[in-house]
């Protein structure tokens, strides 16, 4: 359905999700909401790990990759690489991901998906 004209634009819409959830326009059944929250928390945790790596590295300018065990070196390289490609995005992601999590929690409703309601029956084929 979606075109890809803006594949590299700013990927975040945390504020919009918060607004939709708080106005009651975004309603997510518990199963999908819980899965989305778990996914977002996993991403947030990975972002925080990478930010930690970058901050540690900034504090030790003489740090050499050769001094690190292979598995850790790979994590460090990935963190630095991602930050080089999109400087500042990890910091932005940390802020935005918290908004998404709050929004999905707010939009979460117990029970079946809202699609079961009469007003949202499937579109005719």
């Amino acid at each position: 359905m979606l075109a890809d004209r803006d594949a590299v634009s700013d990927p975040f819409a945390g504020e919009l999700f918060l607004t939709l959830a708080m106005e009651g326009r975004l309603v997510i059944d518990a199963v999908r909401a819980d899965a989305a929250i778990a996914d977002l928390q996993r991403t947030l945790s990975a972002v925080q790990n990478r930010l930690h790596v970058l901050r540690v590295r900034q504090g030790r300018p003489t740090w050499r990759m050769d001094d690190l065990p292979d598995d850790l070196a790979s994590d460090v390289v990935n963190a630095i690489f991602a930050d080089q490609l999109s400087p500042g995005r990890l910091e932005q992601a940390e802020i935005e991901l918290r908004k998404y999590i709050e929004a999905v929690r707010c939009a979460r409703r117990p029970g079946p998906p809202p699609g079961a309601a009469a007003s949202n029956t499937p579109e005719p084929q």
Partner: peptide, 20 residues
């Protein structure tokens, strides 16, 4: 009542999945 239908909620959740 202005509530997003399931297919659009699905698109928004796909956006969340792509964030990672």
């Amino acid at each position: 009542g202005g509530v997003l239908p399931p297919n659009l909620v699905g698109e928004l959740l796909k956006h969340v999945e792509r964030l990672h």
